[in-house]
């Protein structure tokens, strides 16, 4: 990858930043006495530190705006509000009850799961040559890799009874860090994806929820360390059938 910074340079930085023990500091001071270039370097670093603090320390004594003083219900900014509005619109019909019960506040907890799942579906399923990063013939490797990256055990549910076979999977980059994707295909070439991402409120469990995002149907739920979302372009009842199977296999 990248060659580490030579020790003598590391020490110059650590000296300027006051991060050396007495012994190392004495050693660097000896060196600085004999090496004009290194001395200049350290002086410049110290100057930079001073300049940065002079430039920005004033912020510390400014009065803090009201909105940063205590936790409050957020005032939605236009972009976030527009996105949330769209989500409300697209999911509103499907899960009106849930939204009625919770109102606007609930937006924070499911929208990104749906968005990420629908996006992953839209981006990866049309791929002809590289729909997955690791193919199903290396399933063990795939599962071990994703488990390591996600920090808790993951496995690929089996959906052959429903006519879908595992194609493979890939690592995703989600808001909160890594995410995992498994892709399945039926005999007719229809594909679905299961995305798994870290559960914002670890341990929280929810029932199934349904959302539709640009023609992509998504069932999602939160369970333990992860949230799960199954996305596909199919009838809600068909997708629900698959989601239930996934859910059962993950719980057991």
């Amino acid at each position: 990858m990248q060659t580490p910074l030579p020790m003598d340079l590391q020490e110059l930085h650590a000296y300027a930043d006051g991060q050396l023990g007495p012994e190392a500091r004495a050693r660097v001071e000896d060196r600085l006495a004999a090496d004009a270039e290194a001395r200049r370097q350290v002086d410049d670093y110290l100057d930079l530190n001073r300049l940065l603090r002079e430039r920005y320390d004033a912020v510390l004594t400014e009065s803090v705006p009201e909105r940063l003083r205590s936790p409050k219900k957020r005032v939605w900014r236009p972009v976030a509000a527009a996105a949330a509005g769209m989500f409300l619109f697209t999911t509103g019909f499907a899960s009106g009850l849930w939204l009625q019960n919770h109102g606007f506040d609930v937006m924070g907890e499911g929208d990104h799961v749906v968005r990420e799942a629908a996006a992953a579906y839209a981006v990866y399923t049309p791929e002809v040559r590289h729909p997955v990063e690791v193919a199903a013939d290396q399933e063990q490797h795939l599962v071990t890799w994703l488990t390591n990256r996600m920090g808790a055990r993951i496995h690929a549910p089996v959906l052959t009874d429903q006519g879908f076979s595992l194609m493979g999977g890939r690592l995703l980059a989600f808001d909160d860090g890594p995410g995992a994707l498994f892709m399945y295909e039926d005999a007719g070439g229809h594909r679905i994806v299961l995305t798994i991402c870290l559960n914002e409120e670890e341990g929280k469990r929810t029932a199934f929820r349904f959302a539709e995002h640009e023609k992509v149907s998504v069932f999602y739920w939160f369970d333990g360390p992860f949230s799960y979302a199954l996305a596909g372009e199919m009838k809600r009842t068909d997708l629900l059938n698959l989601a239930e199977s996934v859910y059962r296999q993950i719980v057991s």
């Binding site: 940065l52 920005y56 912020v59 510390l60 004594t61 803090v64 705006p65 940063l68 936790p71 900014r77």
Partner: peptide, 27 residues
């Protein structure tokens, strides 16, 4: 948490170069 706001604001200001953007980030 909110006691740390001044330091977060200083860092955010330097990071984003814009007082408004910085405070949004801190918030």
């Amino acid at each position: 948490l909110y006691e740390h706001a001044p330091r977060l604001r200083r860092y955010a200001r330097a990071l984003t170069r814009n007082a408004e953007t910085a405070d949004d980030l801190v918030q």
